[in-house]
Amino acid sequence: MSGCDNDDKDTSRREFIKTVLDAGAKTFTFGSLICITAKLRLPEAGASDGVVQKELQMPAIYGFLVDTMKCIGCGSCVRADKAENDVPEQYFRTWVEQYTFYENGEVVVNSPKGASEGFAEKGRAFQPKGDEKPVKGFFVPKLCNHCINTPCIQVCPVGASYKTPEGVVLVDKKTCVGCGYCVQACPFGSRYIHPVTNVADKCTWCYHRISKGLKPACVLACPVGARTFGNVNDANSEISKALRENRVQVLKSYMGTNPRTRYIGLDSEVI
């Protein structure tokens, strides 16, 4: 019987340990849940959705990478952007430039209608110029560089141009006085005064989409993956990998604006 007693004792000890561990695990789980819930509840006190992400991991800092080696100049990005953001007909939040190098050393750059209709005139993108045959050619998609040291925000007299915590440069349409100083200050021609709203307008990296975890319209529309967008603070993101694996350059680096839009395969002729 004593054996039985022992067994019983063992059983009850085991039971006890099990119960304690179980209770501990449950408490831990419950406690963690309370903690997480508490954390999740915090932003409800008036902060934006982005705060949840901030509490749990490094803040997202967005970057944009353009691979000029991949771009085929189809203009899908320009059309997608126009449709997504209701961009006025004569202006562009993104456009594609075509660079054609001729035998005599001449370089011709153009971007008819911002490349919204592509470059496939006569079925060939790179046309001969008189007797001169094109010897080299490529396309360079352009958009707001969302500079870190941005001159447009610096010069805005009323603070209507601002930067989000993720590094996106935006314009507050309700504050902008439409002086055009930012349009003058941007070295890249990324801004314009909207002909209807009379305020400064520019590429937002589709902020309304990216703040919901979606990709910018131009990135989605690109059939060859020439545009990569993502969180550069996340080492596993597509853009972080691409930035690690490639040598990248920015436009007009001598301006010291420190653009967040970077390029693969920029030629020295690209300004």
């Binding site: 009323v158 603070g159 504050t175």
Partner: peptide, 21 residues
């Protein structure tokens, strides 16, 4: 010249200190 002359006083009510204008 302003796109929104009615907001002209924003320049004094909410001046951006880094702006010369």
């Amino acid at each position: 010249h302003l796109g929104h002359p009615e907001r002209a006083f924003n320049i004094m009510f909410m001046p951006n200190v880094t702006s010369a204008m």
